[in-house]
Design a protein around this nucleic acid. Structure first.
Lengths: 317, 317
DNA sequence: CTGAAAGCGCTAACAC
DNA sequence: GTGTTAGCGCTTTCAG
């Protein structure tokens, strides 16, 4: 293995000089710099990243914790993070969890082990209580959710307000019996949506009108079936993802359910598929969420950033 | 900072013993093992990953090179890689390139710097010639494309055959004037498709019937417009991605173009959106591609693995 | 079964 | 400007 010492010897300088050249430090005479550079080339030398990381105490990489990699929502977040990371010379290390607690803890463990300089938690399953032990260090952890605590970094979509506006919109259109398709019932973001859903005045809510486990197109299909089997049906549905809404709409077409006459619904994300299928949807700035999360990690931002949603009216309400 | 030496001192043993405990080596007396474990807990000690990496010469992480993070195709590949990586105790480091040569070289540089133990190239823009300098080491580089050279690891979809079968299928249905929507013209996968497209007998091909830069739903929209503006139009189109096909189909609906009467097409991927919209599509096992790529990295597999596509007939042809 | 010590390869404080 | 050297924290021979 050819290391910095070999380069130094061959070039007839000290390792520090080589190191200075490597790191673009000033105070290196031009001729020495040149000979070092030449020797490096001649020896086909490359720094050992792990040694650099160890010595410097940082790795220029950030961990991203997310449940799934094949959902557009997370794809967009990743894209946003990556855009900013690229600018700042950082790389992404992925911790895909499938919402398994231990896989998630792996990421926090990696943080403690200094494998990453910080963490962006796009979504989590462990409670803050369980994670507390890992939060002590000075390495930033950015949560993509509305955290009360002001000592935690949090950047999030205002899901409460979004849900609230969704319900008001449906009410304006005359709907009262409102159901919900949601990813899961746990997790701060879902809880915020649920809270808004339950607290909103003037709507009729029933537990059997709440459909959980909704992530994919297939889930939308399934939900339409379940909706049809209901003795008493909600007139309208709030769907927390375009994918699911698309499945719902498509299945409605097959089953002869007229949208929005028999069933109206609006969804969230405003991904291209919603425009494509004419689904009324709230734009969720997930790409920006990723960008902001990374900026916050770099401490360029504030302790807390809230992003708002925008309604795009189309044909499903 | 509490390091292994501190633990050793406090526990009254040597660092090697602590190291042995840490790494689950045999030959440690049970009472010593216990005291070490207790001390670790008491001191709230964690290994420093970078020191381990440096010392061991490996990082248990693999780099994934891909152009975009927000396309379903790459999401699936990532998911596949992540599934296998999880089992093997590896983590993913992302190198998102936007097809920029220097960003791609970054990944190869990281490999040389031992920042990752191997690389999976989901898609690339640099020529093999340019990459040659990086291929020397013994760290595996898996290419998701059909590489002639037997000394390179390659796992890929048989795009030549897939395109060939697509064209035969269209011919059987009576079509002769065939156009193409493709991501790009460079890259081995695209080249294979183009080659099959050009070599297939009995079809009429024209350069103005080849639409490039097709990645997203929006691109499908654009292409339909371009198709309409053509003086002489192909009767049918092979579209290399469901996203694009979906945009095409939707725009056709808006513009009053009847599918498949005015324009027939088939696409690739067989992602949920194609079933949803009734698009005839070849199933491309991208998730398996990711899985196989990782297995090959682990040298569990062969030098070369080919995956086949399967046609799902629906309503667009 | 255990410990001493020689690396792994680099950075940066300090002295000149 | 440049070199010496003490870390960074861990693994792994090699002796015993």
């Amino acid at each position: 293995m050819t290391n910095i010492r070999k380069v130094a010897e061959k070039a007839g300088v000290s390792v520090s000089t080589v190191s200075r050249v490597l790191n673009g430090h000033p105070y290196v005479r031009e001729d020495k710099r040149r000979i070092v550079l030449e020797t490096i080339k001649a020896l086909n030398y490359t720094q050992n990243a792990n040694a650099v990381h160890l010595s410097r105490g940082k790795t220029n990489s950030i961990g991203v914790v997310l449940p799934y990699l094949n959902l557009p929502y997370y794809g967009e977040i990743l894209q946003g993070i990556a855009e900013e990371a690229l600018k700042a010379g950082y790389h992404l290390r992925l911790y895909q969890t499938n919402y398994e607690a231990h896989a998630e803890l792996d990421a926090f463990e990696a943080l403690r082990m200094k494998e990453v300089d910080g963490l962006i938690i796009a979504s989590r399953t462990n409670s803050l209580e369980e994670l507390k032990g890992f939060m002590e260090g000075d390495r930033p952890i950015v949560f993509c959710e509305n955290l009360e605590s002001d000592c935690l970094l949090s950047v999030y979509i205002d899901h409460y307000q979004a849900m609230d506006r969704a319900l008001s919109y449906l009410q304006e259109k005359g709907y009262r019996k409102i159901g919900l398709c949601i990813h899961r019932l746990t997790g701060r973001n879902s809880e915020e949506r649920m809270r808004a859903f339950r607290e909103h005045p003037g709507t009729e809510v029933r537990d059997e009108w709440i459909f959980t486990g909704c992530y994919h197109i297939e889930d939308g299909r399934r939900v339409l079936g379940e909706w049809m089997n209901l003795k008493e049906r909600p007139e309208t549905l709030v769907v927390t993802s375009d994918q699911v809404a698309a499945g719902l709409l498509s299945e409605a077409g097959r089953k002869g359910v007229s949208i929005p006459k028999d069933l109206a619904f609006l969804s969230f994300d405003n991904h291209p598929i919603s425009e494509l299928m004419g689904i009324t949807s709230f734009d969720v700035p997930s790409r920006s969420l990723g960008r902001e999360a990374f900026r916050m990690f770099l401490r360029e931002g504030r302790q807390r950033t809230v992003l708002q949603t925008t309604l795009f009216e189309r044909g499903t309400v």
